[in-house]
Nucleic acid binder design. Structure first.
Lengths: 225, 225
DNA sequence: CGTTTGTCACAAACACTGTTCGTTACGTAC
DNA sequence: GTACGTAACGAACAGTGTTTGTGACAAACG
């Protein structure tokens, strides 16, 4: 033990253990929103809690477990909808937009979904709600199930895409446009011709469009059947 | 220098430098397909080439640069289509299926797309081809541009999803089904009621369905306009 | 009130990681 | 035959996730 400087330690505190999964997830989320996913290391989180990295392993199943717990916290914060057949389409947009917004404000969390699919209770609660809205829209069970999958893809993809533009929404678009302009028009006639359309719209607009496309696609196929 | 054991080194070789970006990417891809993305470390790749990790930095811009180069190699191997209005839909399925298959056989590569969007020449060649097919299908420029984005999301998502089932396609489905069965039916009535639909279909079927949904969705919205 | 017990945080250690850089050996050109 | 410049080597740096033995606290017991 080194009583040099400030011997601030857990033992100096008056009361009980300050460590818990909740406290660890809180600290990790604070670091995530402030400095990004790469900054969320076990040592960094432990330092924020004034403890050692090894101490976290009692409450959290390694770094991947911590990330999963963080994801759960985020998803759990999303307000759900009570399915209403008269306005199911708006409900769908609202729900998915909330998920997207939550994922965007926590950079890197969308990528966590992909390493292992969330099968936790809170994630399933979201799926249950999504299914409810789709069924309220008149979709049959199979279409609703697969549509939920497609929509999940769009949400995570949109979230990750939005993270890239997080620094400056229009900076990336400008860079991409410049990249397109630099292309040899002979080899890439379509990209150069339609560069404006390729970078058109902000993340929110493209997201809404994507969801509408999926809904209309499923409905179109169902009505043709 | 330690002449102990086997002094096998580059200097023992008769001719010129064996190192090049191509050779490095080759070695890295071999490790990737054999042992997964995490095994692709600079030291591991260097060892496969019988050299030190530092030597790779002359030809490759760090680990991220290596991953990008690997992605490029993979995408470049995808055979393109010459857009034909009479069979554009089949062409779209074929092209996207080839991309998906290539991404699935190289686990982790799909995730690379998301850290930074591929703006390399070979990736743009793919986008150019995708746009060509969509325009051949009669879509207007704006619809085609955004549809390309939506389809890209489905491809990467499907690839990542397929990676998870890589070990055993039906094992995950069984596990998920078991998870669903374990749920309290009171809280998750829809999931428990439609568990069969949620896990129905293999990755290929779901992928084809997703693409058809997107196409029909765009066409439906266009015809209504 | 003293002692024992058990829980839990601590910090060091292990085996890695990506990356940088000074040194050294090589093949080639002079 | 010698000098040169290119390019690989390997050590070193600053990190990473994870495991584990040690030690101190607080609560339960006699």
């Amino acid at each position: 033990m080194k009583p040099s400087g400030r011997p601030r330690s857990t033992r100096d505190r008056p009361a009980k253990a300050p460590l818990s999964e909740e406290a660890i997830v809180d600290a990790a989320l604070a670091i995530l929103t402030a400095e990004g996913l790469e900054a969320v290391s076990m040592r960094r989180v432990a330092a924020a809690l004034d403890t050692g990295a090894g101490s976290l392993y009692v409450y959290v199943d390694g770094r991947d477990g911590l990330l999963a717990a963080m994801f759960d916290r985020i998803i759990g914060a999303v307000e759900l909808e009570t399915p209403d057949p008269s306005r199911w389409r708006a409900q769908l947009h609202n729900l998915l937009e909330r998920v997207r917004a939550e994922l965007v404000t926590h950079p890197g969390m969308a990528a966590v979904t992909m390493v292992d699919p969330p099968q936790t209770e809170v994630a399933l609660r979201l799926l249950e709600n999504l299914l409810g809205i789709l069924l309220a829209g008149g979709l049959d069970a199979q279409d609703a199930a697969w549509a939920a999958d497609i929509l999940a893809a769009q949400v995570t993809y949109a979230a990750i895409e939005a993270e890239l533009r997080r620094t400056d929404p229009s900076a990336l678009a400008a860079e991409v446009t410049a990249n397109f302009a630099r292309l040899p028009a002979g080899e890439f006639p379509l990209i150069t011709a339609h560069a404006a359309q390729l970078v058109a719209g902000n993340a929110g607009e493209r997201f809404r469009f994507a969801i509408d496309v999926v809904i209309d696609g499923v409905l179109s196929r169902a009505s043709r059947r």
